[in-house]
Design a protein around this nucleic acid. Sequence first.
DNA 1: ATATAATTTTAGATTGGCCTAAAAATTATT
DNA 2: AATAATTTTTAGGCCAATCTAAAATTATAT
Lengths: 217, 217
Amino acid sequence: MLSLTEENYLKAIYHLSEGGAKSVLTNDLAEAMCTKAASTTDMIKKLSAKALISYEKYYGVNVSAKGKQAALLIIRKHRLWETFLVQKLNFTWDEVHEVAEQLEHIHSVHLIDKLEEFLGFPTVDPHGDAIPDRKGNIKLLPQVGADQLKVGYQGTIIAVKDSDSNLLKYLDKIGAKPGKKLKVLAREEYDESMEIMIDDNKVFLSKDVSKNILVTA
Amino acid sequence: MLSLTEENYLKAIYHLSEGGAKSVLTNDLAEAMCTKAASTTDMIKKLSAKALISYEKYYGVNVSAKGKQAALLIIRKHRLWETFLVQKLNFTWDEVHEVAEQLEHIHSVHLIDKLEEFLGFPTVDPHGDAIPDRKGNIKLLPQVGADQLKVGYQGTIIAVKDSDSNLLKYLDKIGAKPGKKLKVLAREEYDESMEIMIDDNKVFLSKDVSKNILVTA
DNA sequence: ATATAATTTTAGATTGGCCTAAAAATTATT
DNA sequence: AATAATTTTTAGGCCAATCTAAAATTATAT
Ligand SMILES: [Mn+2]
Ligand SMILES: [Mn+2]
Ligand SMILES: [Mn+2]
Ligand SMILES: [Mn+2]
């Protein structure tokens, strides 16, 4: 059984290794966890001893198959709870992450399976992120940050980054929701800001915003 | 903000002091918490420093007004979550306590208020225990253990003790549920066993069982 | 290639929650 | 009232998770 802290480190390692094929570095993990590098090294040793990650001294860590599965089961819980909060308790999508950070550590397989059933087996959470199944399998759609797009691109918003509450409020205001059509009208190379069309609304976005909108690749 | 451990001790102190007017003793608290007396003394000092309990060395503790309110807000969460698990996720009443022990420590006033609304402002949990309101007020009905009853008593089951899963399964089997009519037909003084009528079913109960059935006083 | 800078690890300390063993205080028994 | 038994507290230590400061290693720049 993993402690709450071990679960949080493992999840952070998984998220940091998503996409990139490189090892997760101690300092990056420390920053993500809001702890110091020394503390992180300690935890890396613990997770490594439990075979959840592989660790090469000075060169960072990688999640093992076992670690990936454990991480995905935590993420499954996080996303099912977020879905519950929005669909059943009428939370707004900017209110759910913090509470889900706590709820994801409740230990009960029965609970989470029943919750999933109660929600009608949702496939994505309120931010568009895929929900892993009870085995820890997840199907990731190829997706890219809107900041990477070229003028003329047309596609669909798949998901948005969910950790900043104020960003989510803004995205809600401009209608940037999973499922919406997105078209790139113009792009300013100097600051990488863009003019885009979401459904029928024209908006200007700084890179700081656009990079948090994930679209079909 | 209380730690999970502090919350659990405080709740245990509150429960041990329910009914009785006497102070809660260190050994009793240690037993309830499954820890040793020495550990309990440490925690008593912490809770006392936070003014949640009053502590007289060697003579035990009493919950303060502030402590009582904090305890009742934890109990509120516990009972609302139990109600959720039974009513919405189709848990049986013997499955909910353990999970609620975890869920009661989730910190979010918004969450628990929304949950209460979602459940339709229930007044009692699946075991018949009253649910405190958002201020921490609770209305306790005068109730007594069925083991105290005399032959000829007629009344209604208010609640059942909820901590033993096997007991709950048995109570379910004999139909001993909150709201049901109960009549005492006979009582054997030697072992304090009883013959009772629940609705229209006649059952024999040992004291070990009857003491967990709470009826109108 | 060497010096400097950055990163990572180790060493040693702290805090919360727990323990055992010993000391102190209270309660019960003669 | 003195002694014995019980309860409670204190003393000292352990483990998990954190920190700071110092040492070790790797990366970068001359
Ligand atoms: Mn989230
Ligand atoms: Mn999400
Ligand atoms: Mn319960
Ligand atoms: Mn209950």
